[in-house]
Design a protein around this nucleic acid. Structure first.
Lengths: 184, 184
DNA sequence: GCGTTTTCTTGACTCATTCCAGTCTCGGTG
DNA sequence: CACCGAGACTGGAATGAGTCAAGAAAACGC
């Protein structure tokens, strides 16, 4: 797959949500027991400003700040931060992995089918009976991941006319019909 | 990522669940307005017996039945069937896409962190208030996708001892702690 | 300042999936 | 029932996202 390119090619729209901003990268890194290096500070900074960015987008943004940084370094930094719990990694179907600094709460996401734009969705409302699977077939579940699919405001605006919802996103037909939400 | 290899390398364990079995591939294809070809019948047959298999696994299984079939053909068939609503495609983070013939109901899945084994989870119990995001930030949501992460029976059995939950599966730390299920 | 240990740079390489161009075949027609 | 054309399949090259590995370059504890 990986058709969806995203209007904003991986570099997510700047966010004003304070929950993403990384107050002091340096302190954060140190607290997590990680060495403080320029690439790491930059990565955290970038992710704070652009949550849900792809590794590639992060790399570009980081280079814009520091000059030159190897792609591998970015992957390493991201992996290290994910392991340390400073960064969360999400992998919406059909797009490259995206990263964000808002960790600790297991919030969910809405992803635009046509451009890939991603936004946070605070823990779903109400109780969570439905996040307790009925029968797990013996699996020991430790996490429930939820991804909402739809259309972002801007795509809805354009899309409404051009109608051509970007192809490559399979699942429309079926999905749009018997929508899971309503039926049971 | 894509570290998780899976004990059962993509070819899912045979399923007895009737909801996956494809009664008459030929009829199904015809009904969907698709041409009836050997590769297509074989793919549907294989998927009926091994739900949640990867494209690669499907290809091998199909070749075992028909002799030689190009990889491309398998991808084409899968895509055609997905478009026609005969097959559903799921993409658990960290593994190649998996396919299943149980469509129409938007059921969910449990995925084993260590071996990638996947099982169905019937529509979550109770009402679905929690599948109605609180604030979608303007997105028009048309589908809620849920993936449960955990450990499958066999891995739990082995794993308990060797302790070495296969690496590469990031998210453990945070996830295991403030588990979304309970809090909030 | 120094030595370790960890991180970064380079560059080759894998994997899943897609793109292309040519050949073959299903299935509606005459 | 032979024929034909749109729609499949074949083979091979190409992409995109990531990973592996070996050596150079920084961090940080002393």
């Amino acid at each position: 797959m990986t058709r969806r390119t995203g209007a904003e090619d991986g570099l997510a729209t700047p966010s004003a949500d304070p929950r993403h901003h990384v107050a002091d990268p340096r302190a954060r890194l140190r607290a997590a027991g990680l060495r403080v290096t320029a690439p790491r500070q930059a990565v955290l900074g970038v992710l704070g400003e652009h949550p849900h960015s792809t590794a590639d987008a992060v790399a570009s943004a980081v280079r814009r700040r520091l000059g030159s940084v190897s792609t591998q370094a970015v992957y390493d930094v991201l992996a290290a931060c994910v392991d340390a719990g400073l960064v969360r990694r999400i992998e919406p179907a059909g797009s490259a992995a995206r990263y964000e600094t808002r960790t600790g709460d297991n919030h969910h996401h809405v992803v635009c089918r046509s451009c890939g734009a991603t936004a946070d969705v605070d823990c779903v409302v109400g109780e969570l009976p439905c996040l307790t699977p009925s029968d797990t077939g013996g699996f020991v579940v430790d996490e429930a991941e939820v991804v909402f699919w739809g259309t972002c405001p801007s795509c809805a605006a354009r899309g409404a006319d051009d109608g051509a919802v970007r192809p490559g996103v399979r699942r429309p037909v079926a999905a749009l019909h018997e929508s899971h939400h309503h039926e049971r």
